[in-house]
Amino acid sequence: MEDLRLVANNMRKNIVKMVHNAKSGHPGGSLSCADILTALYFNVMNIDKNNLNDKKRDKLVMSKGHASPALYAVLAEKGFISEEELMTFRLINSRIQGHPNMKSCPGVDMTTGSLGQGLSVGVGMSLANKLDNNPFRTYVICGDGECDEGMIWEAAMAASHYKLDNLLMILDHNGLQIDGRNEDVMNNAPLGEKFAAFGWNVFGVDGHDIDAVTEACKAAETVKGKPTVIIAETVKGKGVSFMENQAGWHGKAPNDEELAIALKDLGGEE
């Protein structure tokens, strides 16, 4: 498990370096979901280089597509893309676009970016798996601010209606969105109770505890007849002192000095 913390830490370094290099991007919500992605890609999902092009495998929809640096960073950790390629993020002619593009980047299972749409895509994937008696699972990562979108609740209703126990949503609950704290911008709390009212099984977990996220995902596999949402309590900007819990770092790139501090916070460069 020590190794996986190192994986997540390396992802965080890559996230800040990518956004710094591109001079644009979304570090806050990427850093908040780095541990969740590490748990999914290294402990939970059956995805590796050999089955990447196979339709019959677990899939992940990064519904909060602006956290693309975190997704690309974990894909690099898995060896689907190179670490060098990460530095093409948001640059002209890159395969790794500002928001994830399944047609250009290996390992991206769905094109996302316009918030609110990924959970619906997960519903379709899960229904297709059910139809085929295919045991593979669909994972969807959504943001808490993203739950302002009405479409999330259309999808939540459908997932429950169709008893999609092969669908797992992980809510990156960092409490912040672009304009500030969720409760100040648009109070969508309590999210767990809302999903429960929609007929979902709800787990709560420390979203920075890779073991705990892994265990919750495994526990969700045993819940039958309803979809599960894991409300992962996270810190926006996690791991970088000056970004933590700062809405201002939602979509802003660090300058050279800030990058140096961030990398130092993350244990420095090898």
């Binding site: 899939k59 769905m110 749409q117 619906s120 379709g124 297709a128 009405g150 999808a155 209703m157």
Partner: peptide, 14 residues
């Protein structure tokens, strides 16, 4: 909106 999103998911899975 959800129907079209779900249609995309069905298509992703063949």
């Amino acid at each position: 909106a959800n129907m079209i999103g779900a249609a995309a998911g069905f298509a992703c899975n063949g």
